[in-house]
Amino acid sequence: MNDDQLTAEIKRAFGRYRATPENIDELATQPIRRPARLLGRPATLRLGAGVFALAACLAIAALVLQPFAPAAQIPSAFASWQRVPTSPDPAMAGWASSHCTNTQLPLLIQDQRGMASLFAFREGTSYLLCVVYTVDTPTEKGWMSFSSTADLGDYGQAIEWSGIGFGGGDQGSGNAMIGRATGATSVVIVRADGVEIQASVRDGLFAAWWPTPIYHIGTPNPREIRAYGPGGNLVGDLAIPVSSETPYFIGTPPPAPSGPPASAEN
């Protein structure tokens, strides 16, 4: 079977799959049925795109605006989050290597915090970020993963970073960040609310994640990244303009707005 015949056969065989047509009048008012992530953004250079993406999501999905939500909404696996990484779980890393990717990508860094871990794999010139966390409910037990890709720019700064928001709904939400800090052996991420997060660092790359309230769809909101060398000396300090975006929520927002998810932190 030559290429043309084979592609014709593929097309014919897949012809059995048909979508259910929607009423045209209702198409334009389709709600977003899943949480949206924002594009990864190296520092401020892509912030505009993120704002635009969020605005587009808003216009289309009519997401509900609410202030930051209470920590009570954070699910159990994320509630074990800590500001300092915990010992990497090798079993979880093994699971991630076979479940986060379908092509055995090289694992660059693992950022374990309690019962959940962020993995960064090299995928070509990009990074595949995968958050794996424990699911333990009456109907499910095991590990669950969210994954997405991120790119690091090369803008000549000592510190480059990219962040994404993930999840939503009952599975939990969070922010994840990967970055590059030349010569750094430790990195501290200062969140907009002042919380200082010790990132996992390996070979000049750093990674960290933190939970957000369940329905929160927002930007990773660090205001500063500080990188330290082997002697504890500051080798990089990147101030990041805090986004003025109001955090957004998808689905039913938490009932009682309050402060940041401080109770999830140790």
């Binding site: 065989a13 999501c57 986060c100 993963s145 969210f146």
Partner: peptide
């Protein structure tokens, strides 16, 4: 824009009965 939940990818193509299915399909 929604994070992929790999576990939920379907391992097999959906089964849809069609009258003109060929053996190769």
């Amino acid at each position: 824009s929604g994070w992929r939940v790999w576990r939920h990818e379907q391992a097999e193509p959906p089964e849809v009965a069609v009258s003109d299915e060929l053996p190769i399909d």
